[in-house]
Design a protein around this nucleic acid. Structure first.
Length: 262
DNA sequence: CCGGATGTTCACCT
DNA sequence: GAGGTGAACATCCG
């Protein structure tokens, strides 16, 4: 479920509930889940005794700074990850509820001296935890994106505009659903090479990104877009009634309207 | 049984 | 170098 909006919810949960609490131990039962050289032993050596001082986010990557000269813990939610603190999730409806309390899905976590815990629950195991990540591998956070930066990225890429928008090294945070909604709102065909967009279209795109993020955040998440109900084979555009196209763009299933997205 | 699912990374082509 | 495709990861759902 996570794109930038869900990552932001998780960040807010961490900020509200996890800062300042002394870490007692690390739960890292799955070495594969740890990335960039991090080991269960390494995590167990680096985190206990520390406290999280700040919960940041860049795109979909959660960044938890620790006090003193401690490391920054980075958490990826992957496709099905969710942050749980003291047994309460970030507020999203439970996925895989039929087996929602399978303890094997708690891929990483820390326990606090006060008895609570922060966990990353990830049934599909596509998330990750690492220490001191290279934050610069990610481009500008989508919430902070401004027209001049978007304009530069658009001009520099011949990739389909959808692929360019989803490239986390350029703009961090937009995933498959948000990108389709953005292009739906901007009236732009997802397969258009980025550098063929007119400046008028780039301006519309910048507005659509901003509006989409704020509107869907208020509605409750990445899955609340206007085009979502039609996101199935044979679905019709809620704006003009045309049957939506279903294609693969940038490696992902893509729905778009052949009438108003040109 | 099969295909597909909100993500990232990598091998392999063109 | 840029960018596309398909696979892999693990699990559930229709």
């Amino acid at each position: 479920m996570p794109e930038i909006l869900e990552a932001e919810k998780a960040r807010e949960l961490i900020e509200a509930r996890a800062l300042g609490r002394e870490i007692a131990g690390v739960h890292a039962p799955d070495a594969w889940f740890l990335k960039r050289g991090l080991t269960p032993e390494g995590a167990a050596a680096a985190l206990p005794g520390r406290r999280f001082t700040e919960a940041r986010r860049r795109g979909k990557l959660l960044l938890l700074d620790t006090d003193g000269d401690g490391p920054t813990l980075a958490l990826h939610l992957g496709m099905s990850g969710r942050v749980i603190i003291d047994g309460e999730a970030a507020g999203d409806p439970l996925l895989y509820a039929a087996n929602g309390d399978n303890p094997a899905w708690l891929r990483f976590g820390v326990t606090f001296v006060d008895g609570g815990a922060l966990s990353l629950r990830d049934p599909r195991r596509l998330g990750a935890a690492e220490l001191d990540p290279d934050e610069e591998r990610l481009g500008v956070d989508a919430f902070a994106l401004r027209l001049p930066v978007l304009r530069a990225h658009v001009a520099a890429s011949r990739a389909p505009i959808k692929a360019m928008l989803m490239d986390q090294a350029r703009i961090a945070g937009l995933g498959n659903l948000l990108t389709d909604e953005v292009l739906f709102r901007a009236g732009i065909d997802p397969v258009r090479p980025a550098n063929t967009l007119s400046d008028t279209e780039v301006r519309a795109l910048a507005r659509a990104i901003s509006t989409t993020l704020r509107t869907l955040q208020r509605r409750g998440g990445s899955h609340t877009g206007d085009h979502m109900p039609a996101r199935e084979p044979g679905g019709h555009c809620p704006r003009d009634g045309a049957e939506l196209l279903r294609r693969t763009v940038g490696g992902r299933t893509t729905y778009s309207c052949p009438v108003h997205q040109r």
